[in-house]
């Protein structure tokens, strides 16, 4: 492995298993993410990438193994779990902005309700974040009035407003029209530069090369290969990875 870990991992998965009925969707997953690291998870459809991502804030439960954040085991449920989720930002493929709330309210809701920030402070911070992701002038609109790319940037701002320790992205650009992909990736590259710890499920090789410290390749519920982006894309070791790369490369 290219990243011998000295510092205690910010996120650590140890021997994690999960089944959906007979389907062994996560098979003995071991993964460490250190502070400031950007890990890209890549792999064929159905290989378990989303499931892996979602177990890290326990939107999916696991059968056995352990997941820790800053050394603390994920709480099973209740207030403690909610508090942990506040520290783990998540950006979904389908944006999932709160449809009945304005863009500004989408970003202020968490800080106000979960962290007890005053409305005035939350709005000030939210406007700054919206400005930063380039949708400051849309604050009063409803999500449906924005383009997909704009919505996804708002979703990133919403997650950032909680000042998370780590951000999870599950295919953040795959629901977007091609011309909007870069505006979202640019925001993510910027985040990575600023030192945000990120786990990103994506097939965007450009992003992986520009921003990732490590690529994790998954197939059939297993982590098959881990390498730097350069190594992985130019010299994949496993036949599964070679096969997969040849497919996404030819498909553009």
């Amino acid at each position: 492995m290219t990243n011998p870990v000295q510092a205690p991992a910010l996120v650590e998965l140890k021997a994690v298993n999960k089944h959906y009925g007979p389907l062994h969707v996560l098979q003995d997953i071991n993964l460490q993410v250190t502070k400031g690291e950007v890990v890209v998870v890549i792999g064929p459809s159905g290989s378990g990438k989303s499931t892996l991502c979602r177990t890290i804030n326990r939107l999916e439960t696991i059968d056995d193994g352990s997941i820790t954040i800053e050394g603390e085991e994920l709480p099973k449920e209740g207030k403690a779990l909610a508090a942990l989720r506040a520290d783990v930002g998540m950006v979904f493929q389908s944006f999932n902005l709160f449809a009945h709330k304005t863009i500004l309210e989408n970003v202020t809701l968490g800080p106000i309700k979960v962290k007890g920030v005053s409305k005035a402070d939350a709005e000030k911070q939210a406007l700054a974040l919206l400005e930063r992701v380039g949708v400051g002038h849309q604050a009063a609109k409803l999500p449906a009035q924005l383009s997909g790319g704009q919505q996804q940037r708002v979703a990133i701002a919403r997650a950032l407003a909680m000042k998370p320790k780590v951000m999870l992205f599950d295919e953040p650009t795959s629901a977007l029209d091609p011309e909007m992909i870069n505006e979202v990736l640019d925001v993510m590259v910027e985040l990575a530069r600023e030192g945000m710890t990120m786990v990103v499920v994506t097939h965007e090789m450009g992003f992986a090369r520009k921003a990732a410290d490590r690529v994790v390749f998954m197939a059939d519920g297993q982590i098959v290969e881990e390498a730097t982006p350069d190594e992985f894309f130019t010299n994949p070791q496993s036949s599964r990875a070679k096969d997969f790369l040849s497919k996404i490369l030819t498909n553009g």
């Binding site: 909610a82 989720r85 783990v88 998540m90 979904f92 999932n96 902005l97 809701l109 968490g110 979703a155």
Partner: peptide, 13 residues
Amino acid sequence: VGQSEAARAIGLP
């Protein structure tokens, strides 16, 4: 379900 997942993800109980 995405709506409630997003709500849970920002820490709402």
